Simulated assay, not measured.
Amino acid sequence: MDDRNRSFAGKVALVTGASSGLGEATALRFARLGAKVVLAARRAGRCEALAHRIREAGGDACHVRADVSRAADVEAMVQATLDRFGRLDCAVNNAGVAGPMRTPLAEVEEAQWDAVMGVNLKGVWLCMKHQIPAMLAGGGGAIVNVASIYGLKPSDVGHSTYAASKHGVVGLTRSAAADYGQQALRVNAVAPGFTRSEMVDPQRPGAAEHYARMVARHSGMRRLGEAHEAANAIVWLCSDEAGYVNGAVLEVDGGGATRMY
């Protein structure tokens, strides 16, 4: 691990959805800055492989299998963090699913709605419900919830369920920030734009043209974001450098691209 900047030395960070993409990049960034990292996801094998990489590089990490839509899993995840490291300082609630796409609202099935809300919204609430007491017991901490640009504006046609869930994440974040800001616990969110991941993969057949159109509409830089770019913003929000940032929603999208032409 890079020991030139050990700003998170002695701190413990928990990252959900850590098996790939933005979650993986965030976990690696924490580890490089000296944090002990707990990797949580449904795909335990991938998390264990990432934990091994971190340990091989001189860091300290462990993995916990968790489905954030299940209260028992989330409670066990936080307890496992405390059992292993004795405290929780930072949490990144990143686990999420895309849900139905190109499906008009009235055609979304109830089971599809429940599945998206269970992970994207209820999952964030459950995580904070158990993370916050653990942090308060240790004197405070920082939480970053991963929303989306679609938590701040309408989605493209046929993606209403995802947008509704991410709008909910923004509301939860700002409300929790008000609830706990006077107790040395900060809660913020990031709103990534289209960022390379398993969900956003321009290498899939026909996907390159689709994402070219999307970034032309949604990114002033007209390119996809990289996972490490969002990770850098997340880790900064957890750092002491962001000590007076609370209830913010930081857009990491290359700049808004709404145009008058």
Results as ranks from 00 to 15, higher is better:
residue 167 H to S: 11
residue 227 A to G: 10
residue 80 A to Q: 05
residue 14 L to M: 03
residue 244 Y to C: 04
residue 134 A to Q: 09
residue 116 V to G: 11
residue 165 S to D: 14
residue 49 A to N: 11
residue 26 T to L: 03
residue 204 R to G: 13
residue 32 R to F: 02
residue 31 A to Y: 01
residue 27 A to N: 04
residue 217 R to K: 15
residue 192 P to I: 04
residue 238 C to Y: 01
residue 90 C to I: 02
residue 37 V to N: 10
residue 194 F to L: 13
residue 151 G to A: 12
residue 134 A to M: 09
residue 26 T to I: 02
residue 221 M to K: 06
residue 93 N to T: 13
residue 141 G to R: 12
residue 11 K to Y: 05
residue 71 A to D: 13
residue 217 R to A: 15
residue 58 G to F: 06
residue 16 T to G: 01
residue 102 R to D: 14
residue 97 V to H: 07
residue 188 N to P: 00
residue 23 G to A: 00
residue 181 G to I: 01
residue 81 T to N: 08
residue 261 Y to L: 14
residue 19 S to T: 01
residue 75 E to Q: 14
residue 241 E to K: 07
residue 15 V to R: 03
residue 223 R to L: 10
residue 106 A to F: 12
residue 25 A to Y: 05
residue 70 R to V: 15
residue 162 Y to R: 12
residue 250 L to H: 01
residue 188 N to V: 00
residue 197 S to L: 11
residue 118 G to R: 07
residue 242 A to N: 12
residue 140 G to K: 04
residue 256 G to W: 15
residue 22 L to Q: 06
residue 68 V to F: 01
residue 67 D to G: 11
residue 259 R to S: 13
residue 235 V to M: 10
residue 157 V to T: 13
residue 45 G to D: 15
residue 239 S to R: 08
residue 202 P to Y: 03
residue 4 R to M: 14
residue 205 P to F: 03
residue 235 V to D: 13
residue 132 I to F: 10
residue 65 R to C: 11
residue 143 I to R: 12
residue 136 L to Q: 00
residue 190 V to I: 06
residue 114 D to M: 09
residue 219 S to A: 12
residue 139 G to F: 00
residue 190 V to H: 05
residue 49 A to P: 08
residue 201 D to H: 08
residue 15 V to Y: 03
residue 96 G to C: 11
residue 83 D to E: 10
residue 260 M to L: 15
residue 62 C to M: 14
residue 222 R to G: 12
residue 182 Q to W: 10
residue 239 S to E: 09
residue 32 R to L: 11
residue 221 M to W: 03
residue 110 E to G: 06
residue 243 G to C: 13
residue 203 Q to C: 09
residue 126 L to W: 03
residue 130 H to Q: 05
residue 233 A to I: 00
residue 188 N to K: 00
residue 177 A to H: 06
residue 215 V to Y: 12
residue 58 G to C: 12
residue 126 L to E: 08
residue 87 R to M: 02
residue 22 L to H: 00
residue 238 C to M: 02
residue 121 L to E: 05
residue 141 G to E: 10
residue 22 L to F: 00
residue 164 A to E: 06
residue 105 L to K: 00
residue 204 R to T: 08
residue 255 G to P: 02
residue 97 V to W: 07
residue 81 T to Y: 07
residue 23 G to W: 00
residue 27 A to V: 03
residue 204 R to I: 06
residue 203 Q to W: 05
residue 214 M to L: 15
residue 28 L to A: 13
residue 36 K to P: 05
residue 214 M to V: 14
residue 124 V to G: 08
residue 85 F to V: 04
residue 58 G to P: 09
